[in-house]
Design a binder for these strands. Structure first.
Lengths: 254, 254
DNA sequence: GAGTGGTCTAGACCACTAA
DNA sequence: TAGTGGTCTAGACCACTCA
């Protein structure tokens, strides 16, 4: 009758753990699948709560609780009176969600963006490990330099699974206006959901120092980011080197 | 009859904005007040949901929603079958909530802790500004060095409002076993709820380098933390200098 | 005025804990 | 067995949006 009916029985596999899960979690998983499969695309309006409730044969309250969690995870966006929308990187508020480098004074503003290099390579062992690929699988490598008010501040390297980013070229990156994650979402169907960063302080090597126009040995903040899409699948490795003379990395502890 | 009855009227102050707020938010505020006033102390069992519902003359569902948010903010802890408890820094899981420095390999473990200095001073302008004090107000200054496996790794300076931390001495800090925030909570009645950190990479100066046993100029990760207690009141300024040769700062982006 | 998400209620049953 | 939080339902009304 409803998804829960197959639940308390402990059913099927005898050796496995019972794998209980509340109804609203099952509904949440079903909705997430629809998001992942592209049944509703980023930016689009989703079916209303009552519609989903009738589709899944549960009460509206149960659907609400499922969507509550999806909204808390920034997968969807609720707007009273209008409906629930699939989250997208093409919005003002999304632009700064993964940008933690803030100017010491004033508000964050758009950076000048210079693509230095784009190429397809075989994944080095370390990259393959972090992206959960086989060593030697193809990856797209990107190197770019970003400047604020003419001052080079961020040097970034990216590694993306070649399988998912087939047509990614320097031209596409240069042409594209707006955040890079917007491009990934619209053109390659890969949406970044969350990420973890490991941060260190290191001395700039000769090449990096030259690009950032600082003396060799200048302390840099280095952030190694692994980004995940639906299903906690790693789909981006990013190494950012930040000059923190007039900027800082913002971290909220809660 | 119930707290909401004073709501839609827009009552009182004519010029002020209507200040609507849903019932469960009002309940949440009332519970937060009780937490702040110490009606229920950290670690203690709170009244059950039905009890609170009858006290506030609302349904259990409304109390639930209020407590849901408090639990999400780590102010309280729910345990099925037992009840709801006031969160405390005296728990395993709380020990690492504000510790973002992780070893590159292995799991985090306890640091050796050496108190270098404790004194009462007048707040420098910058400290006063960040702690929302008047310049010249008394603050307690603490300096300590932490080591992992014998290797000095963290040099920390703290500034605490003198008003709140009257009897804080080096002896108390040294005697106390367990996390510093546990001491602040139990002995000074000040509980840290959340914090923000601004992070930079800088070169170690002579004094810092000597304490951390590294060459002058070694890149350090510097985190300037402002911690807040109930009501978003700033109650701690902390400047941590981290050696990141074998550790990293972990940041979760979501 | 119709449709959407947001709040609130009352009541039922379940899972977990401890006496 | 009693008490707690956790889930689920059904229904009411509100606030907001838009045609």
């Amino acid at each position: 009758m409803n998804p829960a009916s197959s639940n308390p029985g402990g059913d099927a596999s005898p050796g496995a753990s019972p794998t209980f899960s509340p109804l609203y979690q099952q509904i949440k998983a079903l909705i997430t699948q629809s998001l992942q499969s592209g049944e509703w695309k980023p930016g689009e309006l989703m079916p209303s709560e009552v519609e989903l409730a009738s589709r899944f044969k549960v009460s509206q309250g149960t659907v609400r609780k499922a969507i509550d969690e999806l909204a808390a995870e920034n997968l969807v966006l609720r707007r009273q009176g209008k409906g629930t929308f699939v989250a997208t990187h093409h919005e003002e508020r999304a632009h700064f969600r993964f940008l933690r480098l803030m100017p010491d004074e004033g508000v964050p503003h758009q950076a000048d963006n210079r693509i230095l290099e784009v190429k397809r390579i075989r994944a080095p062992a370390e990259v393959a490990r972090l992206l959960e690929l086989k060593s030697g699988d193809a990856v797209v490598y990107v190197k770019r330099l970003m400047a604020f008010d003419g001052a080079p501040t961020i040097l970034e390297e990216l590694w993306l699974p070649g399988q998912l980013f087939k047509g990614l070229t320097a031209e596409r990156l240069v042409e594209y206006k707006g955040p890079m994650y917007g491009l990934f979402e619209s053109e390659f169907g890969t949406r970044m959901i969350r990420a973890t960063e490991k941060i260190k302080a290191v001395a700039a090597d000769a090449g990096t120092a030259q690009l950032l126009a600082v003396p060799e040995g200048t302390p840099l903040l280095v952030a190694e980011r692994v980004s995940f899409t639906y299903g906690d699948k790693a789909v981006e490795l990013r190494r950012g080197m930040y000059l923190t003379a007039h900027h800082h990395y913002l971290s909220e502890l809660s």
